[in-house]
Design a protein around this nucleic acid. Sequence first.
DNA 1: TTAAACATGTCAATCGATTGACAGACGATC
DNA 2: GATCGTCTGTCAATCGATTGACATGTTTAA
Lengths: 326, 326
Amino acid sequence: MATLKDVAREAGLSVGTVSRVLNNRGYISEETRTSVRDAMARLHYQPNAMARSLSKRSSSMIGVIVPSISHPYFAKVLSCLESAAHEKNYQLLLFCSQGKVSREEEYVSVCSSNRVAGLVLCSGTVKTGELRDLGFPVVTFERFLNNADAGVECDNYEGGVIAARELIRAGSRKLLCISGAGEVSMPADARREGFLDVCSEHPEIEVKVCLCAPEHLDDLNYVQELRTFLDEMPDTDGIFAGSDVIGMQAMTELAKRGRRVPEDVRIVGYDDVNLARMTNPQLTTIRQPVPEMAKECIDIIMKAARNESYPARTMFHVTLERRGTT
Amino acid sequence: MATLKDVAREAGLSVGTVSRVLNNRGYISEETRTSVRDAMARLHYQPNAMARSLSKRSSSMIGVIVPSISHPYFAKVLSCLESAAHEKNYQLLLFCSQGKVSREEEYVSVCSSNRVAGLVLCSGTVKTGELRDLGFPVVTFERFLNNADAGVECDNYEGGVIAARELIRAGSRKLLCISGAGEVSMPADARREGFLDVCSEHPEIEVKVCLCAPEHLDDLNYVQELRTFLDEMPDTDGIFAGSDVIGMQAMTELAKRGRRVPEDVRIVGYDDVNLARMTNPQLTTIRQPVPEMAKECIDIIMKAARNESYPARTMFHVTLERRGTT
DNA sequence: TTAAACATGTCAATCGATTGACAGACGATC
DNA sequence: GATCGTCTGTCAATCGATTGACATGTTTAA
């Protein structure tokens, strides 16, 4: 592999000058600029990112920890983060915690070792040890932790409120509120709260809260639990699903029971993943502005890198995507 | 951030000794070993991976280029790769090419800059320039390129054969063979070939080949095209879908047309992603041993790192997952 | 004419860890 | 008493790029 020195020799210039071209510092004539570029091309020169990071004391990598990659919501988040990072010439270092705290801690260490520019944490309960003073900012995605540097969230309470209103508007009276796994703890809590608050304003509404065990991160199979829930309230006519994946499986299970959607039962999902448009009828769902959220995460990390101040907590609105199930 | 020097000072030892502990070289007494560990713990020492990579001339990162992250098949691949890499203490550097050759080339450069230990290429047509002599092995996933160092594949021809036999076994006579996007070019070609070869052995079988445009990588919406295909052969009674995503949308579209699955139409998907179990009925599909394939990729990269020889081409069998649609 | 802006070179330190050469010290063994 | 094997230390080079200080030119512009 060619080094800076080789390029300098090839171009008949000094390392200093070549470095100036590479980093756009000081005075450089257009002429030498091109001759440096030519030399780099001839030698297939690729600057050694390790050496650069070492001397700059920070890399162009951003760590991302998700609980699961196969879950369409996190796949979507990853996709948006990659796209936002790429625009700023940053790369993603990907980690999958499978919801295990020990893994999260390990991955935080690895990020620290690699001197990432920042860490986006899509996983993790409040437990994860001390997240400050790591030398890089930790931004939580869709959750807020006191021990992190910043949080980018959606108004989950609002999401619950919108979902409840939509189901009631569509004529549902016996509601099932199903909280999923994967979006463990806090986000789901706020959604449920918003949902229940609206319900309590309507005395005629009956609600039942169902919690899924957090073990479905990879196989995403909620069928067993959904059966139990539906058995417990067989005449439900409105379901608020914690994710589109759950919503979709609820549709399948309802079809098996001969209950029609949306005539007999209305459903509101969450996340608006691709999946939600593939069902028949298409799933009504609550959408988060994931691309904007991802961009915000990257922005925060870049601001921190430039030593600028950044918001400690950013909250986005969610919107209702009304489709065929309500 | 504490450095090796700091640890040495804290432990009252020399850098040489501390480095010996870290890298398990030479003679070290159990006593100093623990005192070094203690010192590291006290200082929250995290070895600088950049410095290490620089002097070792190789990092513990593995580049991965996929065309899309939201596509459940690639999400699954990523998930398995992450898991296999983690076992060996390697990290993934994630790139999403969106099927664009220019992006692929750019990403290969970035990997080269970062002196990755290897690159797993899940994306890319044969076009991608020269992939050898980059200083690290390039392993293609589910495709074979002459200009890469190794390929880990599935027997796609076999997949096509199995799918055809299954549809015929289930009583289908007018077949639709739909090749998807995302799994562009070669993999899909071989599948189709196997499928058609079996069909040509049965003179009573009618087949129609349909190609989807490769623009659905992110939204995964094949509905428009599926409608066209189904209009062209409205009485089809057997569909071989290029992916479960397509298979699932075909089910939805068939339901709208009042055609029952599997009574009127049989469907065989491909990939066996989580999705395939969420439909009603569950989708019969061709499964690839993705976890094993991912492990093999990582193995190859590790062998290359140790300068051992590795297989240039590894082929796995696919298996039929017979479920409700056949 | 003279001071500035422009353009490049030299040199050396630095980032943090790795590695090898070499030198002592201690204890055990023959 | 000589010879190993074990344990640690010192020292310096190296990986490849960055950066700053400083010198030396050449153009421009006032």
